[in-house]
Amino acid sequence: MSAEPMKSDLGLYDYLPWPNRPKIVWPGNKKIAVWIAPNIEFYEYNPPNNPTRTPWARPNPDVLQYSHRDYGNRAGWQRMMAAMDRAGFRGSVSLNVALCDHHPEIIKACADRGWEFFSHGIYNTRYVYNLDIEQEREIIRDAFDTVRKHTGQELAGWLSPALSNNFWTMDILSEAGIQYTCDMFHDDQPMPVKVKSGKLISMPYSLEMNDVIVYNTQKVTPRHYGEIIKRQFDQLYKEGDESSTVMCIPLHPYLVGQPHRIDAFAEAIEYIAGHEGVWQTTGREIAAAYHSTGAYDAMSAAIAAHNAGPHDVGKETR
């Protein structure tokens, strides 16, 4: 890594405690914005190495892990999409943009449904670690161009490939026109991100609702995944009376699209869709509403006031 000393803080957002925040109300008086973000990914058979992270645990080709991921693009995506169709959810696709070249059939099926595409880098086996800033800008340009060429959409959102980041990443995303990042997990509401230009916001994505964390890290059962999705929803839905919230369900078709997992997931999202006051939406639409409802400006003012202190609530104790 670089010779620069490590920092103790990301420095990308200011503290703003939950109580007494400006109230967010989503369009149509919806209490909660629920968005589903399928990670439609391509992992390479023989990727180059990056000194910070080796793509596969075993030497290339790691055929078990490679084929496991490939399952998502041969079989799993169709089950996932069918479940989302039934519950009336459009996807916001976290896309490894090279998939436009490899599997245009999948891209077309998503586009035909009015799904949003946001960028998840070129491949999930290429990281931004050790890139210089110009190289990382090149990846952002590639992503914008590829998604525009294949879908006609302008990228609004970004999830860094395999959540790899540099300190400048948010600045150059915002500079390129990205409106929301999914790389930060510090809140249940969108929040302003401190960048050099533009009005980038952090969009609540989720580690805990993410099937890859649930299945590959926490190793929970499919039915328990269905349970935690419902409980997460119940709580955020209830709290949405106070101020509207965001719930995201990030997915990976190679995991949630397995036969033994799809039904528990489908049942959970049908449960969500069965409630009044739920905004079934996309990342792009939430970002737009955050600005149009005045939430961005109100939160920015609240953060400035909090920074000016004194505070009655959420006083920092360290």
Partner: peptide, 10 residues
């Protein structure tokens, strides 16, 4: 990305 084309990368 030499294998970035239609279909599989092998």
């Amino acid at each position: 990305y030499p294998e970035r084309h239609y279909g599989m990368d092998h």
